[in-house]
Amino acid sequence: MLNKQLNKSLRSLFALLVLVMGLGFSTTTLAADEQSSKQQAAKDNPAELWRAVKGGETGRTTAQGIEPGVLINVGGNEGRIIRDDYITPAVALALVGVFGAFLVFYFVNGPAKLTKGFSGKMVERWSKADILLHWIMAIACLILMLTGLMIILGKFAIQPYVSASIWAGVIAFSKFVHDWTGPVFIVSWLVCIVKWMPLQTIKMYDLKWFLVVGGYINFGPFKGKHPDSGFANAGEKMWFWTLVFFGLFISVSGMMLVLPGLDLPREASMLALLVHGVSAAILIAFTIVHIWMATALSEGGMESMVSGYCDENWAIQHHNLWYDEIKANGTLKYQE
Score class of each variant (00 low, 15 high):
187 V>M: 07
128 K>H: 03
55 G>W: 06
208 K>P: 00
124 E>C: 02
307 S>Y: 06
209 W>H: 06
271 L>Q: 10
209 W>Q: 11
236 E>N: 05
68 P>D: 11
233 N>V: 10
281 A>Q: 02
176 F>S: 00
93 L>Y: 05
92 A>F: 13
194 V>P: 09
107 F>I: 09
220 G>L: 02
296 A>E: 08
126 W>V: 00
249 F>P: 01
144 L>N: 06
230 G>P: 01
137 M>Q: 11
227 P>I: 08
276 H>K: 08
325 E>W: 09
255 M>A: 14
225 K>H: 05
217 I>F: 08
172 A>S: 10
76 G>S: 02
54 K>P: 00
95 L>S: 10
81 I>R: 13
7 N>G: 09
247 G>S: 11
18 V>A: 15
185 F>W: 10
85 D>E: 12
312 E>I: 00
158 I>L: 13
305 M>Y: 07
169 G>A: 03
24 G>Y: 04
53 V>P: 04
133 L>H: 01
290 H>N: 09
247 G>K: 10
184 V>W: 15
160 P>G: 09
178 H>K: 00
146 L>I: 15
178 H>Q: 04
323 Y>T: 07
276 H>G: 04
74 V>Q: 10
21 M>R: 11
203 K>M: 13
94 A>K: 04
67 E>H: 03
329 N>D: 15
130 D>L: 02
335 Q>W: 03
211 L>D: 05
121 K>H: 05
184 V>Y: 13
202 I>K: 11
34 E>L: 13
101 A>L: 12
310 C>G: 01
301 G>P: 00
299 E>M: 09
76 G>N: 02
322 W>K: 12
103 L>S: 11
314 W>A: 04
140 A>F: 02
276 H>F: 09
48 E>H: 06
224 G>A: 07
333 K>V: 10
159 Q>W: 00
218 N>K: 12
98 V>L: 08
136 I>H: 05
201 T>I: 15
336 E>Y: 00
56 G>H: 09
82 I>G: 00
38 K>D: 02
249 F>I: 12
313 N>I: 00
121 K>F: 03
164 A>Y: 06
237 K>W: 07
315 A>Q: 01
288 I>D: 06
133 L>T: 03
32 A>C: 04
185 F>I: 07
288 I>N: 07
189 W>L: 12
207 L>M: 12
254 G>H: 10
41 A>S: 10
145 M>N: 05
242 T>P: 12
233 N>L: 09
47 A>K: 03
189 W>Q: 08
75 G>V: 14
130 D>P: 07
25 F>G: 15
39 Q>R: 03
23 L>P: 00
185 F>Y: 14
184 V>A: 15
200 Q>W: 01
60 R>D: 11
199 L>A: 11
78 E>N: 13
193 I>W: 15
144 L>V: 14
27 T>D: 11
100 G>F: 02
300 G>R: 00
236 E>H: 07
23 L>C: 05
89 P>Q: 01
27 T>M: 13
98 V>M: 05
238 M>P: 03
213 V>T: 06
215 G>W: 12
33 D>L: 10
329 N>F: 07
175 K>Q: 02
114 L>C: 04
244 V>F: 14
95 L>M: 12
201 T>P: 01
39 Q>V: 01
317 Q>S: 07
224 G>C: 05
329 N>Q: 09
